[in-house]
């Protein structure tokens, strides 16, 4: 479980997060939704310590991450898997080396065990057999999936995904959503997914946080989201004509 308390973050004069508190339970997929530029990525980065929040704190299973020193954070970080919005694959390495990298760094497994783990992860993201491709040879969607494979390589306790299915076709997007859901339930990870894909919201949104203007505007589940009378949230959810029709 991850708990955040009153996270504030500004860049220069611009305040992006204005005091956000939330609880993310393990074993369910927690979604963070919101318009472009609403601070979703910033919130995620504050949680994992890539941005230092101006105030507030983050707790990983009761451990106060914000007040930890470098060594203690390193320990927590080996339990974190993260998919970046731009995939952030190491472009000097091929697919296999990318996924194997955390295993090389932090485990004492034999090469064969590591190779098996890589193949297992690649299979889960439907990329089996693509071990030797270079990062520059991957399509945008493939990069995303390799990014996910790398994020789950170490069997993380905490999984952060920044827009895991943007740029994917609807079918693969659902496969990825289901994969994230499966991993979350199977290993009881605490999973936080940033998205603005309404299919994901309806599909896997057991706990949804809607960010608007730097605050937590709404919180609930995918069952409640269609019936809420929150104006901004409705505008967000029913932005497309298709969804509007559905609403009626």
């Amino acid at each position: 479980m991850i708990e955040i308390k009153n996270i504030r973050k500004s860049f220069g004069h611009r305040t992006v997060l204005k005091g956000i508190s939330a609880e993310f339970k393990d074993g369910i997929t927690n979604l963070v939704i919101g318009g472009s530029g609403s601070g979703k990525t910033t919130l995620l980065k504050c949680m994992v310590g890539l941005h230092e929040p101006n105030s507030g704190s983050v707790f990983y299973d009761e451990r106060n991450f914000t007040s930890m020193n470098f060594e203690a954070r390193t320990h927590v970080r080996t339990e974190i898997g993260m998919l970046f919005q731009g995939s952030a694959l190491f472009d000097s390495m091929n697919v296999e080396e990318n996924i194997m990298f955390p295993l090389n760094m932090f485990t004492e497994l034999s090469f064969k065990e590591k190779r098996d783990r890589v193949n297992f992860c690649l299979e889960r993201v439907n990329l089996a057999g693509n071990n030797q491709l270079l990062v520059s040879e991957l399509s945008g969607g493939m990069k995303k999936r390799v990014g996910i494979a790398r994020a789950i390589a170490m069997n993380p306790k905490y999984l952060f995904c920044d827009e895991p299915n943007s740029g994917l076709d609807p079918k693969t997007a659902i496969v990825i959503d289901e994969l994230i859901q499966e991993i979350t339930e199977e290993y009881r990870t605490t999973t936080i997914v940033v998205t603005h894909d309404m299919n994901s919201v309806m599909g896997i949104g057991e706990n949804i946080i809607f960010l608007h203007q730097g605050t937590k505007w709404w919180e609930g589940s995918n069952k409640e989201i269609t019936t809420t009378d929150n104006k901004e949230l409705n505008e967000f959810v029913f932005a497309s004509k298709f969804m509007k029709k559905l609403q009626k």
């Binding site: 927590v76 970080r77 970046f84 952030a88 694959l89 955390p102 170490m154």
Partner: peptide
């Protein structure tokens, strides 16, 4: 990519 390294610890 540097952020990705940091995240891995």
């Amino acid at each position: 990519q540097i952020d990705a390294l940091e995240i891995m610890g």
